[in-house]
Design a protein around this nucleic acid. Structure first.
Lengths: 217, 217
DNA sequence: ACCTGAACACCGTTCAAGT
DNA sequence: ACCTGAACACCGTTCAAGT
């Protein structure tokens, strides 16, 4: 459709959400403001309330957008794929979904469970497919909650603004703490957050496997 | 000291922080406002800036308070105590520190690492004592980051406001989803969040133990 | 149906001026 | 040194009124 008069354009729910996401990347989570979203769409702030119940509603939908980018469709393990390989992939993608946008972890973790539809669908997919792979419902639930809690917690920390204090001390070479020693080791061995995340995830998956084997006895 | 004139009382940094924490429990995190903290102390909002750099500074100190309640002094494993028993205890206490106050997980997870002193001391204690127990610095670091990420993520989810949608559906008995099935199973078997947390933690510790044994070969 | 215009009740932060 | 008083530049939300 052609729109010669900018002011007269109707806005839709989707545009509001997309604008909010781009604002998230530009200004961070606390820079996502209904007033700024409205301004971006050449509309008054109150107008948004016709399309959106309130700000939290918008935040939930933003979480949906982030998740949809990494989970365009939810599939179970491919044939012959071991559940652990599939689950690892899901966790890696969840992290990617959060990392892809500034403060993405806070957005996803802050979304209300039943309102961010993708979140619920993700849970159902994880647990459903684990059960199909032979897990009891209980163990599948524990596995979901353990792995996803890990991913949330890890990426929230990962995306936290770097501490200015640590940076200055590192520059001055004054910090003799263990934290400083880790910094040095990470640099010397090229340990990246990606590696840290994967190695931690591997340990968790190992624990799950043990539990899974006990269950099968 | 006696204070007959309320208005003339000097306020101290500690009072500000304590007031903020009690406000957190009463009104939740978004109810913690510099203006309300000031009002509680019979002072104008601007006055707080003499004692506190800004709001984030206050938030960091609040995280310190929560952690100090559960970690009055930081001790390594008792003699003859296995590292895994000690580490499990530290994780349980970290969760308790967060659970003890409304939205405590968000407060702790939102604190800047180098500003919330307790957080840094906690990391040093964990990693230092794991190294003392025979861990390589690398494995100790991974173990810290994996377990603590899990605790953060778990408690943040745990403290998230319950979804009104799920509650209404549960009442109407309409929800036939897997999520609903889990609700029923949890109720039938008396599975509590405490149990979920501990079982997940156990799986992670199992994974760490395996890694630790490989390292020792 | 969808938006304007304007208000309401708030925020964090700054800063001259008081004591 | 520590606080007042007042301002500045914002917020989310509501709602009569317009079109």
């Amino acid at each position: 459709m052609l729109c010669y008069n900018v002011k007269a354009m109707k806005i839709h729910r989707e545009q509001i959400i997309d604008t909010a996401v781009s604002l998230l990347n530009r200004d961070g989570l606390e820079g996502v403001t209904l007033r700024k979203v409205a301004a971006e769409l050449h509309v008054h702030a109150g107008a948004l309330y016709w399309h959106v119940r309130n700000k939290q509603d918008l935040l939930d939908e933003m979480a949906n957008v982030l998740l949809l980018e990494q989970f365009p469709q939810l599939e179970g393990p491919a044939s012959e794929q071991h559940w652990s390989d599939w689950l690892r992939e899901m966790c890696l993608r969840l992290r990617q979904a959060m990392l892809a946008h500034r403060e993405g972890a806070r957005v996803v973790a802050g979304a209300r469970f039943g309102r961010a539809i993708m979140l619920k669908q993700l849970v159902e997919t994880i647990i459903g497919n684990l059960v199909a792979a032979g897990f009891s419902l209980r163990l599948a639930t524990l596995t979901y909650s353990t792995t996803f809690s890990y991913v949330y917690g890890f990426v929230i920390e990962e995306q936290a603004a770097p501490d200015p204090d640590i940076i200055s001390k590192k520059r001055d070479g004054l910090d003799e703490s263990i934290v400083a020693a880790i910094f040095r080791e990470n640099r010397a061995n090229n340990y990246t957050p990606d590696m840290d995340f994967q190695e931690g995830l591997e340990m968790i998956l190992d624990g799950v496997k043990q539990r899974m084997m006990k269950q099968s006895l």
